[in-house]
Design a protein around this nucleic acid. Structure first.
Length: 575
DNA sequence: GCCGTTTTCGGCCCGACTGTTTTCAGTCG
């Protein structure tokens, strides 16, 4: 049973309890435990075997016992009893917008609806409006939301797309009369790997006119809701966007609120309560009902005696405790990156020449760029033969003398880790290169033991400097290889091999929680773009965002080092 | 059901928006 499957059981329990009408805090407890299990980064089995289930935040005695039963037997009696009481199909009904536990329970008890199909049929037949408190409008909304669900218009989008769409809208918003400031908030600002809807926040006095203008933007297909301070719309491509408008004197608290995460905000509000304050997007209220406004985000944190907490850390993963103790990490920043250690050219499957790639790197102010084209076995990517690899070396020398000293081009390879764990080039060929990245692209579906051993074998090859996109996942398209990450981290630390945080928004691999575990084990990381076009070098912001979500500091990142230090490290390894 | 530098029992965030209502419940973030 995977972490995701176990988390799903507890999430379903939470939903069923909620429909059943159980105490909300019991529901929240199950939901919190489900989230914690899903975001572990470690294998639930390992924690179970070590008897440390109750060390997971949100897991106490009762839920630990249920995890134990689930992992031992593959089943959970408590869940099965619950599912006999409340039809489990109702969980899917909750995924329909505007349908929560109360309505789902009434649809079930009063109309005998237990699935989305049955709900759709009832709505089409006009039976929902017969319930008290429901009307034709609610019915039409629910029907529309069922269609949106069917068309998967509710899927989360990749960070790259979210960034692009958001920037476009922010540009327009900033151009509106009276707008002082417009910024991205929500999971995009926190650099979560996928984004549900876009949350934008605007500082302006005249919220009404800004919102009116916003819903008229050409990108907007329809308005889902609009009030005094916020509007919610759907764009032509199905992207959902929420815009909040607050007066500039509230901008800080509003931005903080809209950035989330929800769990982080709940913690802050609890802290506020303990001080006799109430925190909302409008700032603080004292017990005497006096307002404390926050024009800047730092004001919100300062009122709680906390330093400003970077958005990427705001996930209720210990950041508030660290802030209270004055132990927030000094996170890596984009400007810390001195080079990119993984890029492709048209020698293999890249879309640009080495010169074009180098010029793009120069423009970003990088000190060095590694050209690391694919190796011979990756036919689909036009992998290089040994002969062509050596020709490429000569070509790089020529290019280097042409462009001068401001950018050092290093010759590397992204060498295939073959199905048996051997590498696609012999050791003597790898030894000729400046730097070697070893990656998995093929046979990713091998059993855990096999694929883990395969990566461990590559890690122990003394020519290997970096493991590229370690798990091989493609977000939303291809599951990660079933690796024992803790063994990988231990081996990487032992052999002093860096693990990549691949910055391509389709990969983000290592992911945030893995990066955090890796540095705790003493691993070195490398934040690389894996660029196949000059513009892909910009992906580094997503890699840095992911690293920051993993509490990564610059000293753990190989490519924050200046060229001479990097070359020193590489030379030491060759000995 | 979980949790504790005020607690091992008694708490557990806060407000906007919508639809159906004459004052509010439900949903969402």
């Amino acid at each position: 049973m995977t972490n995701l499957e176990a988390a799903d059981v507890f999430r379903r329990i939470a939903y069923l309890l909620e429909i059943k009408g159980e105490a909300i805090y019991r529901v929240l407890a199950y939901r919190r435990a489900a989230d914690a299990i899903q975001e572990l980064g470690r294998d639930l089995h390992d924690i179970w075997e070590q008897g440390e289930l109750q060390k997971i935040p949100g897991v106490g005695k009762a839920i630990a016992e249920k995890i134990d039963e689930l992992l031992r037997t593959g089943k959970l009696e408590y869940y099965e009893k619950l599912a006999a009481e409340v039809p489990p199909g109702l969980v899917e009904v909750l995924a329909v917008g505007d349908v929560g536990p109360k309505k789902a329970a009434r649809f079930w008890k009063e109309l005998n609806i237990t699935s989305v199909d049955e709900l759709e049929k009832a709505a089409q037949e006009g039976r929902l409006r017969e319930l008290s408190g429901m009307g034709a409008k609610s019915e039409a909304r629910i029907l529309e939301n069922i269609h949106a669900l069917r068309e998967q218009r509710t899927d989360r989008m990749l960070l790259g797309k979210a960034e692009q769409v958001s920037e476009q809208l922010l540009e327009r918003l900033r151009g509106l009369k009276g707008v002082v400031q417009a910024e991205a908030a929500g999971s995009l600002r926190r650099f979560r790997e996928t984004v549900g809807d876009l949350d934008l926040i605007v500082g302006a006095k005249n919220s009404g006119t800004v919102l009116e203008a916003f819903i008229q933007f050409p990108e907007v297909a329809r308005t889902l809701g609009q009030g005094d301070t916020k509007a919610s719309v759907e764009l032509h491509d199905g992207t959902r966007v929420q815009v909040w408008v607050h007066p500039p004197e509230h901008f800080g608290s509003a931005w903080q609120y809209a950035t989330g995460s929800q769990a982080h905000n709940v913690r802050l509000r609890e802290l506020a309560q303990k001080r006799g304050l109430s925190l909302s997007e409008r700032g603080f209220k004292t017990e005497q009902d006096d307002d404390i406004t926050c024009a800047k985000e730092v004001d919100v944190y300062a009122a709680l005696d906390l330093p400003w907490i970077p958005p990427e850390l705001r996930e209720d993963r210990g950041e508030i405790r660290a802030a209270q103790a004055g132990e927030l990490p000094q996170l890596v920043e984009v400007d810390d990156l001195k080079g990119d250690l993984h890029a492709h050219s048209d020698w293999s499957d890249g879309g640009a020449s080495m010169r074009e790639m180098a010029e793009a790197a120069l423009e970003l102010g990088l000190e060095y760029l590694v050209v690391s084209d694919h190796s011979r076995s990756l036919g689909v990517a036009n992998g290089l033969s040994i002969e062509r690899l050596r020709e490429q070396r000569d070509e790089i020398s020529r290019l280097q003398s042409e462009i001068g000293d401001s950018l050092k081009i290093l010759h590397g390879t992204e060498v295939e880790i073959l199905a048996d764990g051997s590498l696609d080039f012999p050791d003597e060929v790898l030894a000729e290169l400046d730097i070697v990245i070893a990656s998995l692209h093929m046979s990713l579906r091998q059993p855990r033991e096999v694929v883990t051993e395969r990566l461990l074998r590559a890690l122990s090859n003394q020519n290997v400097d970096i493991i590229g996109h370690p798990t091989g996942r493609l977000i939303g398209q291809r599951e990660p290889a079933d690796l024992d990450m803790e063994r990988i981290f231990r081996a990487a630390a032992e052999h002093d091999v860096a693990l990549e945080i691949n910055a391509n928004p389709e990969r983000l691999d290592l992911r945030d929680v893995h990066a955090r575990l890796a540095i705790e084990q003493g691993c070195l990381l490398a934040i690389n773009t894996d660029a196949h076009h000059p513009e892909h070098l910009q992906f580094r912001i997503f890699g840095v965002g992911t690293a920051r979500r993993g509490w990564v500091t610059p000293d753990s990142v190989l490519n924050t080092w200046p060229l001479d230090k990097l070359q020193g490290w590489l030379a030491d390894r060759k000995r």
